[in-house]
């Protein structure tokens, strides 16, 4: 089945949020499938295979975590979570389950639309390029070389692995647990402090102003987000 506009599944138990989101996403040019709870969300996902899923976390009848889990059992469809302030553990759990991004209620429509665009661009990008290019920064994955403003930055293998992970997820949050799993392969003695130490030294080597990062932003409670938009 060919679709012209991307199809977005919106799962939220509150009718006014669901309707407003559906209307505004339609105005922004997307096709929208609204679902009132996790069970309906999973059914619609199986049936329609949307291009992106936006889901609330706290819902009666199968919560957002259940929706993420069933999406991830099938494929890599991007999932954006609508989280609530003060329930940071829920948000981190959702990201660790495979959600790609989150916005915090009450979120702004502008912010949500920006996240939707980032996710759709990424999932449509196809095979990962050999060289990642950002404003002022170039990461050559094949040569394992990093150049910043024309000068070569010498990174340790650990720092390079973290940078590659963050840069290939540019614009998306990466949890500390995901970093430990990908870079340290979940080695038992690795703590979140170990990750912070390596990110600290990575920032000092990479950032023109380490206190005011341009590339590696901190996501409170979660981990890090690569801030720069890739050059196309």
């Amino acid at each position: 089945m060919t679709r012209t506009a991307p199809l977005i599944l919106v799962v939220d138990d509150d009718p006014s949020i669901r309707q407003t989101l559906a209307r505004e996403l339609a105005v922004a040019g997307y096709d929208v499938l609204p679902a009132a709870d996790g069970v309906e969300g999973r059914t619609l996902f199986e049936e329609w295979r949307p291009d992106l899923v936006i889901t609330d976390l706290a819902m009666p009848r199968a919560d957002g975590h259940a929706v993420i889990a069933s999406v991830r059992r099938v494929d890599r469809t991007p999932v954006i979570v609508l989280s609530v302030r003060g329930e940071e553990e829920d948000k981190v759990r959702a990201l660790d389950l495979g959600a790609d991004d989150y916005v915090t209620k009450p979120f702004s429509l502008r912010e949500l639309l920006a996240r939707v665009r980032t996710q759709l661009r990424r999932s449509g990008a196809g095979a990962a390029p050999e060289v990642l290019r950002f404003p002022g920064l170039e990461i050559d994955l094949a040569r394992r070389a990093v150049t910043q403003e024309g000068r070569e930055v010498r990174l340790t293998p650990t720092e390079l692995a973290i940078l590659e992970l963050l840069a290939t997820h540019a614009g998306r949050p990466v949890t500390l647990r995901q970093i430990i799993a990908a870079v340290w392969k979940g080695a038992p003695a690795t703590t979140t402090d170990t990750v912070r130490v390596h990110v600290g030294s990575l920032r000092r080597k990479l950032e023109p102003d380490p206190a005011n990062p341009r590339y590696i932003g901190t996501e409170p409670w979660v981990g890090y987000r690569f801030l720069a938009e890739p050059d196309l």
Binding site: D14, S16, I17, T20, L21, R23, E24, V27, A58, L82, V84, R85, G86, E87, K105, P106, F107, S108, L109, R110
Partner: peptide, 22 residues
């Protein structure tokens, strides 16, 4: 209780914000 209060206060706020923005 706090979860319920938080949910019940934030849901209408989120809807309001979306409406105002739109």
């Amino acid at each position: 209780l706090l979860r319920a209060v938080s949910h019940d206060l934030r849901t209408p706020l989120t809807a309001m914000r979306l409406e105002v923005e739109s």
